[in-house]
């Protein structure tokens, strides 16, 4: 069974009388444990697709089925609860909370789950160890390098063991060395946790790691290929 399935997924933005198709009848499905990426130029619809799958936005037409549930009809509260349980996000700009330590940032998604302090601590440290940052648990984002910040963001995305991790240009703000480091970690986590990773990227370094590359252009899927 597909973890994610889209049927005629369409998103139209209106600018005055002009209709802009950010996504144009996209039909895709992703299986559990995939390490797939959406590539294409700016404005091709990559981020919009991730937003639809992450239930951060609603489609104009079509359906999104995540974990067997039709998500386009969820209200904002149901969508938040769904995200809380199944979806992890990694952002281009890391989006860490500046006043909180690495530990506290990673702990955030667990605060709303019914877990004891001990359980939370165990899970956070486990996630930080997976990204090799256990020793920086008490550092604040301002005390971390760009690569370390993104690793904290990855730890935050995986700490609740989501089925799906959506990464929007995760290496865009990193140098080559840190990009490879982060990608190695994500590939490793994908292996270990069997979580489905979907990237939105146009970074060649990321593309090298993908096992499936979906090319978008003007909101349409123009190529869907399995990588060696």
């Amino acid at each position: 069974m597909s973890v994610i399935k889209t049927e005629n997924l369409t998103k139209i933005y209106r600018m005055g009388h002009t209709k802009i198709y950010a996504l144009d009848h996209v039909n895709l499905s992703f299986e559990k444990g995939e390490f797939a990426g959406l590539v294409g130029p700016s404005g091709s619809g990559k981020t919009t697709f991730l937003n639809m799958v992450g239930i951060l936005d609603k489609p104009t037409e079509g359906r999104v089925i995540v974990m067997g549930k039709e998500t386009s009809s969820l209200n904002q509260k149901e969508a938040a609860l769904f995200r809380r349980k199944y979806i992890g996000f990694i952002f281009q700009t890391f989006n860490l909370f500046p006043h909180y330590t690495a530990f506290e940032n990673v702990e955030f998604p667990l605060l709303l789950l019914d877990l004891s302090t001990e359980e939370r601590k165990e899970r956070v440290m486990e996630a930080l160890e997976m990204v090799n940052l256990a020793h920086r648990a008490n550092s604040k984002p301002s005390e971390l390098s760009g690569g370390e910040r993104q690793r904290v963001a990855i730890a935050r995305a995986i700490v609740k063991r989501p089925e799906i991790i959506l990464a929007d240009e995760p290496t865009a703000n990193l140098d080559a060395k840190n990009s490879y480091n982060v990608l190695d970690i994500m590939a490793d986590i994908n292996e270990k946790l069997k979580a489905t990773f979907i990237f939105a990227t146009h970074d060649e370094k990321v593309i090298k790691y993908l096992r499936r590359k979906i090319t978008l252009n003007d909101g349409k899927v123009v190529k869907d290929e399995v990588m060696k």
Partner: peptide
């Protein structure tokens, strides 16, 4: 604003 968006992405409801 970005923090608000991130909280929502992490699973916080608008009310929360």
């Amino acid at each position: 604003k970005k923090e608000i968006g991130t909280l929502m992405a992490l699973g916080f409801t608008r009310l929360q």
